[in-house]
Amino acid sequence: MKTILITLLCSLLLLHSCTRNKAMDAENKENFPYMVTFSAATDFPSEVHEGFLADEKKQLICGVPKAGTEEGPWQSDGAEAGMGADVIPAHLDLTYVSYAEKKFWRVDAELPKTKILEAFRKGFIFKGTPDEKGNQPMVHETFGRITIGAAPGGVIVVWLSKIHHRIEICRLQAKEVVVDVNDFYDNPHKRTQKEFFDELYKISVSDSMKTDIAKNGIPYGLWDKYREKFRYRFLLRPYDEKDHFTFQSQQYFNGEANLFYPPHFDKNEYIIASLPYILNAGFTIYNAEIHFDYEETSKIFKTLQEKYPKELIDIVLTPTFQYNKIKVSVKCRDIEIPLVRAKVKQIWGG
C-alpha cells in the first residue's frame, strides 16, 4: 500500500510539474502557430477581396483566406483555407464585400501585438486526453486561430479561439471603398457595378433578411451593443439536491466563448461577459443546450440594473422531474423574471 501511495504521489507531482512547465514555457515564447479565418455577422454574408496580416514594418506575414462567401453566425470562425503563420501580427489590411449593404469595405489598421502575445501566452486550462483509467487531467493550452469578423457598418472584430475558448482582441473600423467588379471576379456576364450588387444581394441574402431589411433597414450598431458586458452567473435550482453542474460551455453574443469545469464554478463565482448566446450545460445525469434571445435578455438585464445598480444577476435554470423541461429565468434580489424566449433546444442523458 505504501508503494502504491508513493507511486501515486509521484505521478501527481509529475503531472503538476509538466502542466506548470508548459505554462512557464508559454510565458517565454514569442511565436505561436495559428490559422487565419474570416467570418461574417449572422445573416449578413460577406466575402474577402484581398487581405493580409503584417508585422510592425508592414512586411507580409500571411494572407487572409479567400474562401468564398461567409454567412455567419457571428460566433463562428469561418473557413481556414490554409492561411496561417506563427509570427504575432501588428497590422491588418483587408478589403471585403458586404452583400447585404452592396458595398466594399477596407480596414487598414494596427493590431495590438502586445495584447495578442499576452493572450497566446496566458492561454487557458481545459481537460486533457483521458489516461488509461479514464481520468482527464487539467492541462494548459493556448489559442490556435485568429479570426477576423465583419459586420454591417464596417465593424471589424478580431478574436483568438480554440477548443470552445474565444476572446476578443480588438474592434476596428473599416471605411467604404470602391472596387471595380472586374477586379473582384472574372465577371463572365459582364455585369455593371449595380448589376453585380443587385444580383449578389438577390442570391446571397436570405429572403427573411431581405424582408427585414425592407421593413426595418440594416440594424447598424447592433454588433457594438453585443459587446456590452455584465456581471452574472448561471445558477442551478436542482430538482434533486444532489444534482450540480459538471461543465458549462458558454457562447456570448459578442462572439467570445468560455468552457468551465470544476473547480472553475465550484465557488459559484460571477463572470464579466457579454450576454449569453448559447449555453451547453452538463449536470450530474443530464445535459442541455439552451439558446437565448438578445432583445429579451438585454431588456431584462438593463431593467434590473436600473433598479439595483450595484447588485449581481443570476440566470437561473430550474429543471422539472427527470429534466422533461428546464425553466430559465433572471433573478436579482427579490425579483425573478422568466426568459420566455429562451429555447431549450435539446435535453439528453439519463
Rank of each mutant, 00 (worst) to 15 (best):
K57W: 08
K58L: 01
Q59W: 00
L60C: 10
L60R: 04
L60K: 10
I61H: 00
I61G: 00
C62P: 04
C62W: 00
G63V: 12
P65L: 06
P65V: 14
A67V: 00
A67G: 15
A67T: 12
T69D: 08
T69A: 13
E70F: 15
E70T: 04
E71W: 00
E71T: 15
G72F: 13
P73A: 01
W74C: 07
W74E: 12
W74G: 12
S76T: 03
S76M: 08
D77L: 01
A79N: 07
A79T: 13
E80D: 05
E80P: 07
A81F: 03
G82D: 07
G84N: 07
G84D: 14
A85I: 08
A85G: 03
D86Y: 04
D86S: 06
I88C: 13
P89W: 10
A90L: 12
H91G: 11
L92E: 05
L92V: 02
D93I: 06
D93E: 12
L94R: 05
L94F: 14
T95Q: 12
T95W: 09
Y96Q: 12
V97S: 10
V97P: 08
S98Q: 07
S98I: 03
S98N: 04
Y99Q: 09
A100L: 14
E101Q: 11
K102R: 13
K102C: 05
K103R: 07
K103S: 08
F104A: 01
F104G: 00
F104Q: 15
W105Q: 15
V107H: 01
A109I: 00
A109D: 09
A109T: 05
E110P: 02
L111I: 07
L111D: 00
L111S: 05
P112Y: 09
T114P: 00
K115W: 01
K115M: 09
K115Q: 08
I116H: 04
I116Q: 02
L117F: 08
E118I: 04
A119D: 11
R121Y: 08
R121T: 02
R121I: 03
K122F: 11
K122W: 02
K122T: 11
G123Y: 09
F124Q: 06
I125M: 15
I125N: 04
F126W: 04
G128C: 09
T129Q: 06
P130L: 03
D131L: 10
D131C: 07
D131W: 15
E132F: 09
K133C: 10
K133M: 03
G134P: 03
Q136H: 09
P137H: 05
P137V: 05
P137G: 10
P137K: 14
V139F: 01
E141A: 10
E141V: 10
T142I: 07
F143A: 01
F143K: 10
F143E: 13
R145A: 13
T147E: 03
I148A: 14
I148K: 11
I148H: 02
